[in-house]
Nucleic acid binder design. Structure first.
Length: 572
RNA sequence: CGGGGCGUGGCGCAGUCUGGUAGCGCACUGCAAUGGGGUUGCAGUGGUCGGAGGUUCGAAUCCUCUCGCCCCGACCA
C-alpha cells in the first residue's frame, strides 16, 4: 500500500476528551472516529488491526473444531422474557420497538438466540458435544461509556456456546477452550493471565477471566509466587492471621480529634501507625436480620472487599453503604468518628482486626476517638469474617507462596453455564437411555475490539503505538529520503516495495512528498513494527537502514539481498 | 440516575462577565524555497458560534426551553 492511495490522517494534538493512552493514540493515528457516545467507526487503518485480531480468533476457534455461524443482532423480546432477562438484564439492555409496536432488543449477548436454535436443531445426544461461535457486533447501553473502544456501547465480540449431554463433557470443552484462549492471546503477542473469576452472576460452576496485563487496567488481579494460583481480587480469600491477639499494654483513652475524620488525618496528626487503626464502614443490613445497619471493621491500611461483604448473611445484597444522614441517625455521630466501642448496631470484624490490640478507632461521638482499644477488656469480640481485599505479600490461599497484585484488562471470559438457559428454555435432547435430558451449556466470550485497545495499553511508547507484529496494520514501512529529487532513491524504494509486496508482505510505502520528520513521526505513531529507510547516503555504500519499532538504533543492511534479509526479520 | 463542566471550521482553543455582526494555532489548498526527525515564506479554502424560541435597532455574547458531549460519583469515613 502506498500512503498516497491510503487514507492516512494523523493528528498531532491529543483530543481533549481522550483519557487513556490507547484512546488517545487510536484517535491520533486515525484508527477510529467517534460517531456518538460509545459508538465508533473504524477507519481503514483501524479496521486492518481489528481484522487481524478477528482472524486470529477465528483461525484458532476453527482449528479447535468449533463451528462459526452468524446470529441476528436484533432479537424478539419474547426470548428474553422466557429467561427473565427482559427485566433482569437491567438498563444496559437496548430495547427497540418495531413499526407494529412489538418489542425487540439489540443483542448484548446471544444465550437466548443460541439456546432457541439449539432446542430446535439438537435432538439427540449423538449430535453432542457441539460448539457454535460467531464474531458479531454487540450493544450494551453502558451507564458510562468511556476510554474509547475499551468500554464502548457498540463493540465487536466473539461469543461461543457449547452444548453437552453431561457435566464431564462440558468440563472437557471448557478446559479445551481455556487452551484455545491461551493460544489466541499468545498468538496476538499479548502478555496475559488467566484468573479465577466469579461465576455467580451468570450461574454455573467454573469461570475464568483472561486479562491483558497493563498498568491502566480496570481490574485488580492476584497471583501467587509459589503456585499457579491466580484470581480476580474479588474472589481471593485473605487467610486469617496466624499470630494470637497480644494482650493489652495501654489504657483506653478518649481523645478529642476535631480535625481527624479520615484514617489518613488520624495517622498524620496523632502519629499512630496505620496498622493500629480501625475503620468502620456502615452498610445496610440484610432484610429480616433484625437490624437496619451493620458495621464492618477493617484495619486502617486495608480496603473492604465489597464482594465478600455482600455475601455475608447479615448484610444486604447488593451491598449498599449507609448515607451520612442514616449514619447520624443510627449512631449519633458522623462518618469519621465511628468505632466498635459503645456501638449499638451489629458489628462484624475482619479477621485481621480480631487480632489487633491497643488500637485506635472512632468513639461514636463527634470529633472523638478512642486510643488503646482492646477486645474483651473494652468491648466484646464481635463476629469475625473475611472482609478485606488481599494485599501484596499476603499468603496465597492455597498455602503456596505469597500473593502479588497486577492490573489487567479483561479481554476474555469463559463460563460453565450448566442448565441455566437450557432449563428455562427447555432445550433437551434424547440420551442414550431414551430419556429427555436438559443440555448443559458453556459460554465463552472474547472482546475483539477491546483487544485492540488493550494491546495499545500494553505496547506503546512516547512516540506512539508499538504493535505486536501479528496484529500490526502493516508489517513494514518504507521511507524514501528526498525521493522527489533522487531517482536512485525512488527506484530503490519502488523495487523493494514491489518485491516485498510480491512476497506477500504488508508494506506501507510512504510516497508522500513530505519532510522525513513527518514520515518518521507518522510511521512511529501508527506503530509499524519494521522500518526501512532508503536514502542517497546509504545507497552510495550499497546499504539500507533497518529499524525495529522498539529498537534504540538503526541497523545497516546490504542492498544486495535486502529482500531475504528483511523477510528473515519478519515474524520475529 | 445524582453532582459538576463544556458545545465557536477536521483537531486544540480565545472571544461570552461588560451585545456592535467571528479570531488564533494545527490541519487542508496553491506557489516557491528547503530536503535524514512534525522546515520556511507568500497567497488561500472552510464556521447559519449545538438547536428552537424570546429580549434588542443589533445576539456567539442577555433570557427561556431543548439536544448533545465530557468528567466525577456509595472506593473506604
Amino acid at each position: 500500500m502506498k500512503t498516497s492511495k491510503f487514507h492516512l490522517v494523523t493528528n498531532r494534538e491529543t483530543p481533549a476528551d481522550a483519557e487513556i493512552v490507547s484512546h488517545q493514540l487510536m484517535l491520533r493515528s486515525g484508527m477510529i472516529r467517534k460517531l456518538t457516545a460509545g459508538i465508533y467507526s473504524w477507519t481503514p487503518l483501524g479496521w486492518r488491526v481489528l481484522k487481524k485480531v478477528e482472524n486470529i480468533v477465528r483461525e484458532e476457534m476453527d482449528r479447535a473444531g468449533y463451528l462459526e455461524m452468524l446470529m441476528p443482532a436484533v432479537q424478539p423480546a419474547e426470548l428474553w422474557r422466557e429467561t427473565g432477562r427482559w427485566e433482569d438484564f437491567g438498563s444496559q439492555l437496548l430495547k427497540i420497538r418495531d413499526r407494529a409496536g412489538r418489542d425487540f432488543v439489540f443483542g448484548p449477548t446471544h444465550e437466548e438466540v443460541i439456546t432457541d436454535l439449539a432446542r430446535n436443531e439438537l435432538r439427540s445426544y449423538k449430535q453432542l458435544p457441539v460448539t457454535f461461535y460467531q464474531i458479531q457486533t454487540k450493544f450494551r447501553d453502558e451507564i458510562r461509556p468511556r476510554f474509547g473502544v475499551m468500554r464502548a456501547r457498540e463493540f465487536l465480540m466473539k461469543d461461543a456456546y457449547s452444548f453437552h449431554i453431561d457435566a464431564a463433557s462440558l468440563d472437557k470443552t471448557y478446559w479445551e477452550m481455556y487452551e484455545v484462549y491461551s493460544r489466541i492471546f499468545t498468538r496476538a503477542g499479548l502478555k496475559f493471565r488467566a484468573v479465577h473469576a466469579d461465576p455467580g452472576a451468570i450461574g454455573g460452576s467454573a469461570s475464568h477471566e483472561f486479562h491483558v496485563l497493563a498498568e491502566s487496567g480496570e481490574d485488580q488481579i492476584v497471583f501467587s509466587t509459589g503456585s499457579d494460583f491466580a484470581a480476580n481480587i474479588e474472589l481471593v480469600e485473605a487467610l486469617p492471621p496466624e499470630q494470637e491477639r497480644p494482650g493489652p499494654s495501654t489504657d483506653l483513652t478518649l481523645v478529642a480529634t476535631p480535625d481527624a475524620h479520615t484514617i489518613e488525618e488520624l495517622v498524620k496528626q496523632f502519629d499512630v501507625p496505620v496498622e493500629k487503626t480501625v475503620k468502620t464502614l456502615v452498610v445496610e443490613a440484610a432484610e429480616g436480620s433484625g437490624a437496619s445497619f451493620v458495621a464492618l471493621l477493617v484495619r486502617g491500611d486495608h480496603t473492604l472487599n465489597e464482594f465478600k461483604a455482600a455475601k455475608l448473611e447479615q448484610v444486604a445484597n447488593p451491598l449498599r453503604f449507609a448515607t451520612e444522614e442514616e449514619i447520624r441517625e443510627a449512631i449519633g455521630a458522623g462518618p469519621g468518628s465511628l468505632g466498635p466501642v459503645k456501638l449499638d448496631i451489629p458489628c462484624i470484624a475482619d479477621s485481621s482486626v480480631a487480632v489487633m490490640s491497643d488500637f485506635t478507632a472512632g468513639a461514636n461521638t463527634e470529633d472523638k476517638h478512642y486510643f488503646g482499644i482492646n477486645w474483651v477488656r473494652d468491648v466484646p469480640m464481635p463476629a469475625v469474617a473475611d472482609l478485606r481485599n488481599v494485599v501484596e505479600g499476603d499468603p496465597s490461599p492455597d498455602g503456596e507462596g505469597e500473593l502479588r497484585l497486577a492490573r489487567g484488562i479483561e479481554v476474555g471470559h469463559i463460563f460453565q453455564l450448566g442448565t441455566k438457559y437450557s432449563e428455562a428454555m427447555n432445550a433437551v435432547v434424547l440420551g442414550q437411555d431414551g430419556k429427555s435430558h436438559v443440555m448443559l451449556m458453556g459460554c465463552y466470550g472474547i472482546g475483539v475490539s477491546r483487544i485492540v485497545a488493550a494491546a495499545i495499553e500494553q505496547n506503546h511508547d512516547d512516540r506512539g503505538i508499538c504493535w505486536p507484529e501479528p496484529i500490526a496494520p502493516f508489517q513494514v514501512a518504507i521511507l524514501p529520503m528526498n525521493a522527489k529529487k533522487s531517482h536512485r532513491v525512488r527506484e530503490a524504494a519502488e523495487k523493494l516495495y514491489t518485491e516485498l509486496t510480491e512476497a506477500g508482505v504488508e508494506v506501507l510505502y510512504d510516497d508522500r512528498n513530505v519532510r522525513p520528520g513527518v514520515m518518521f513521526n507518522d510511521m512511529e505513531l501508527i506503530g509499524i513494527p519494521h522500518r526501512i529507510v532508503i536514502g542517497e547516503r546509504g545507497l552510495d555504500k550499497g546499504l539500507l537502514e533497518y529499524r525495529q519499532r522498539t529498537a534504540p538504533e538503526n541497523e545497516d543492511i546490504p542492498l544486495q539481498g535486502a529482500l531475504e534479509n528483511i523477510l528473515d526479520r519478519l515474524g520475529g
